[in-house]
């Protein structure tokens, strides 16, 4: 009755061990003159995973993000995005790769001369999308970051937290499969910083987005590693603590020091680490 070979041809289920990571670094090194910024870095971000990169300022955290976007090139090693080796890509070749990636900058990096609406619409305008679609998507994203009222404001009129949230809306428009957060909570008050983490959790749990969250604040690690988002029957988003019912496996912590990875694992493993530097960092000591 059925042709088994035909079924094999049409249905191809990728075995889990062959799933290509969203981001992969293979023995990446980078130095500015004599200063080593990244020293033989190997890392991998699975699909739907949130990788928190932790470390002091100047430890090479943001450089990793710039390498993924192709804003910098490594001195040696390979950088892969969605299985595609982008190490030697030119600026033109990087453009389609960047369409898959959303980037949230430290200070928002909004374009000062255009409104919030135009900032968020920027990527879709570059892709010459239909005006009605742009309008729909911009309003959807601004609602996602709870800034629907700020649509006609100029960036200069926004507070620091609002600028970051507009930055997130701009990064998320076009539904990128990878989102990079470069210290999005730096300099923000704790409630606004928590809002940033909640946005990252929503992306991770509800939209299956792979992300890298660069930070030096342990509060963010606690929030991201211990909470998950669910949607109620009414469509409302709720945040719940992991516990007996569920243990989060889609968030990992990676700690960097002087361009090297000194820890890679879950937050529980981080708390139990014997490394003296890690212990001091967690306690906030020098």
């Amino acid at each position: 009755m059925f042709d088994d070979n035909k079924i094999e041809d049409t249905i191809k289920i990728e075995p889990f061990w062959e799933i290509v990571p969203a981001i992969e670094f293979q023995d990446v090194c980078l130095a500015y003159d004599d200063k080593i910024v990244l020293d033989h870095i190997d890392l991998s971000v699975r699909r739907g995973e949130c990788k928190i990169i932790l470390g002091r300022s100047g430890g090479g955290k943001s450089t990793i993000i710039r390498l993924i976007l192709g804003l910098l090139k490594p001195d040696s090693g390979r950088v892969l995005v969605d299985g595609e080796d982008i190490t030697d890509y030119t600026e033109v070749e990087m453009m389609p790769i960047r369409q898959k990636i959303g980037m949230v900058f430290q200070e928002g990096a909004l374009f000062d001369s255009i409104s919030v609406y135009e900032n968020v619409a920027y990527r879709l305008r570059e892709q010459e999308r239909d005006e009605a679609e742009i309008d729909r998507e911009v309003r959807r994203m601004l609602e996602f970051v709870d800034l629907a009222d700020a649509v006609d404001k100029m960036p200069i009129e926004l507070s620091g937290g609002m600028r970051r949230r507009v930055g997130i809306a701009r990064a998320l428009i076009g539904d990128p499969s990878i989102v990079l957060f470069d210290e999005p909570t730096a300099g923000l008050d704790p409630p606004t910083a928590r809002t940033m983490c909640e946005l990252a959790i929503k992306l991770r749990d509800l939209q299956d987005v792979s992300s890298i969250f660069v930070t030096h604040e342990m509060n963010n690690v606690t929030n991201l590693c211990s909470e998950y988002a669910t949607v109620s029957e009414k469509g409302e988003v709720h945040f719940e603590k992991e516990g007996d019912k569920l243990c989060l496996i889609n968030t990992e912590v990676l700690m960097m020091r002087n361009g090297q990875i000194i820890f890679n694992g879950t937050d529980e493993q981080l708390q139990a680490s014997d490394n003296q530097y890690v212990k001091r960092f967690i306690k906030g000591e020098r």
Binding site: R66, L69, L71, E91, M95, P96, R98, Q99, I101, M103, F105, Q106, E107, A109, L110, F111, D112, Y122, R123, E126, Q127, R170
Partner: peptide, 12 residues
């Protein structure tokens, strides 16, 4: 203010 980086990151 990283706007040039943002521009490149957005594919421009």
């Amino acid at each position: 203010s990283q706007q040039i980086d943002a521009m490149r990151a957005l594919g421009t």
